[in-house]
């Protein structure tokens, strides 16, 4: 097996990189894929919390990079799935505790064991970003539909163009129906037009996402959430299925709202 290593990045903090990593990972695992999540946000780790796997951490990414343990020893196994593992970030170090070569080595060690290796990237464009990107062959850029996040996503896409990596795919997170949109919120189509990359999916803004993170139970496990459906569709698209962007994402009422958001006449 030769797994794909995908970095999930954004530039700006708080737009949903960790949420996206956790939920795409969960959705892929629900499809029977072997998935390994790597948290590279050293010093601010929280993918373990969102996944509900924080209490069993003994070793972390820095331990594995520095050879204090084998990479396999640092993995946390998620018992809810056949194969969903997490390599947690260190909490007490900083981003410079790992370098790109070490990251590449870790990814190469894991690659034969998994279908997907998802790398949760820290905010910013410095060392942490460089580490996260160094091991990846694909990238997913996450943004929210606001000017500042889109500006940072654009910056990140520019930096990714200099890397030996496929053209990134876009996830627009926290999309609201037009009724609750206000002020500085952009249309998804404007976001896609500016960034000029393929749209992999969009995730609605939903209170369940926050509650799920709080419970340590990724929203993708909940079959009754619209955000969950969004993540499951992204997983199917990553597996090569062509899932129409809007058609099945939402329940009827929301669907019609989305259609008007996209200017599609029903």
């Amino acid at each position: 097996m030769v797994g794909e290593a995908i970095v999930i990045t954004s530039g700006k903090g708080g737009v949903g990189k960790t949420t996206t990593s956790a939920n795409i990972g969960t959705a892929l695992a629900l499809q029977g894929q072997k998935v390994c999540l790597i948290d590279t946000d050293i010093g601010l780790r929280n993918l373990d919390v969102v996944m509900g796997l924080e209490n069993r951490i003994i070793y972390d990414l820095v331990d594995a990079a520095e050879g204090r343990c084998k990479v396999q020893q640092a993995l946390i196994r998620d018992k809810r799935f056949d194969c969903l593992h997490l390599l947690p970030a260190a909490q007490t170090k900083d981003k410079s505790a790992v370098n790109p070569e070490q990251m590449q080595e870790i990814v190469e060690t894991l690659r034969p064991e998994y279908d997907f290796i998802l790398i949760d990237c820290p905010a910013g464009i410095e060392q942490g970003f460089k580490n996260a990107v160094s091991g990846a062959d694909k990238a997913i850029v996450v943004t929210t539909p606001d000017t500042a996040a889109v500006r940072d996503a654009d910056r990140i896409i520019g930096l990714l163009e200099n890397e030996d990596i496929e053209p990134p795919k876009l996830v627009v997170n926290r999309v609201r129906s037009d009724l609750s949109r206000e002020g500085n919120v952009l249309d998804v189509e404007d976001v896609v037009a500016t960034l000029a990359v393929d749209l992999l999916g969009m995730i609605v803004d939903e209170e369940h996402v926050l509650k799920a993170a709080h419970k340590g139970e990724p929203i993708a496990m909940n079959p009754n959430s619209r955000a969950s459906l969004g993540y499951r569709n992204i997983a199917r698209r990553l597996l090569g299925e062509s899932v129409p962007l809007m058609a099945v994402e939402e329940k009827k009422s929301f669907f019609s709202k989305m259609k008007s958001l996209f200017g599609i006449k029903s």
Binding site: T147, D154, R155, G158, E161, T194
Partner: peptide
């Protein structure tokens, strides 16, 4: 190319860009 946020394209003479110049570029 698209001149993206944070990128600076600097040339002597004239420049013809086939693509956009995004905010921040």
């Amino acid at each position: 190319q698209i001149v993206r946020s944070g990128q600076v394209l600097r040339k002597t003479g004239d420049i013809l860009i086939i693509g956009d110049v995004n905010p921040g570029g």
